[in-house]
Design a protein around this nucleic acid. Structure first.
Length: 213
DNA sequence: TGCCAGGCCCTCTTTAGGGCCTT
């Protein structure tokens, strides 16, 4: 069933056989949560059989083994189900360019498409958490003391923690700049604005909002 | 034989190089 709520966002994460679909890499797991008004309302998780063996490195990195994938549904079936889950929602991922290229590649193989906007929590966090020692998902979760029960490099857990990170990013904007009901378009503007200009961008946004009152 | 991803972003930059981030 398609979802079309302005304040609804699907946070997703892929585990894959490697870094590049252009070089033949495929998805092996998809994990996602839907957040509405900052609260997780639904989740999606599935292993998928990429049609080839995964390397020992990927087995070690993810904890997903060839044995686990042997009985999994094929990518085409899982991705069709996931496309239905997305509906018309906007999308978010940590280092979104990576997940976006795998999503588009897997959906192209089954002649499906998504319509939402893609937003990146990595780009936003680099601009808003300037003092974080690193902006990897794991380090940001530690830096912000976000709680969670699971293992990094599994798709659903990473999606859950990315969702919590996103809520923390929105809280940061609300607390520091006193902006409530932050539109996704503003977050996308932040994500593509040079670091030194983010403060000006947000202050100008506040002034624009005040001028409407 | 040697190489092998790609986008973003900073700086000792912009006619470039290298680190970060994702698996």
């Amino acid at each position: 069933m398609p979802h079309k709520l302005a304040n609804s966002l699907v946070v997703l994460d892929f585990e894959t056989t490697g870094l590049s679909p252009e070089k033949g890499d495929r998805a092996i797991e998809i994990g996602a949560v839907r957040i509405v008004d900052g609260v997780i309302t639904e989740q999606f998780q599935a292993l998928m059989n990429p049609g080839k063996h995964i390397t020992a490195f990927i087995e070690d990195y993810t904890g997903i083994t060839n044995e686990m994938l042997a009985d999994a549904k094929p990518c085409s079936e899982v991705m069709s189900d996931f496309c239905d889950f997305i509906g018309d929602d906007n999308l978010l991922a940590h280092n979104a360019s990576f997940d976006q290229k795998f999503l588009e590649h897997e959906l192209s193989l089954i002649n499906r498409h998504y319509s939402g906007e893609f937003t990146c929590s990595l780009l936003a966090s680099r601009r808003l958490f300037l003092d974080a020692p690193s902006h990897s998902l794991g380090n940001l979760v530690s830096y912000l003391e976000l709680s969670g029960d699971g293992s990094f490099h599994r798709a659903l857990f990473d999606a859950q923690m990315t969702a919590k990170l996103w809520v923390a990013i929105l809280d940061k904007v609300t607390t520091q700049y006193h902006i409530k009901n932050i539109p996704l378009s503003l977050m996308q503007q932040i994500s593509c604005t040079p670091k030194k200009q983010v403060s000006n961008l947000l202050q100008n946004y506040i002034l624009q909002q005040c001028s409407y009152i």
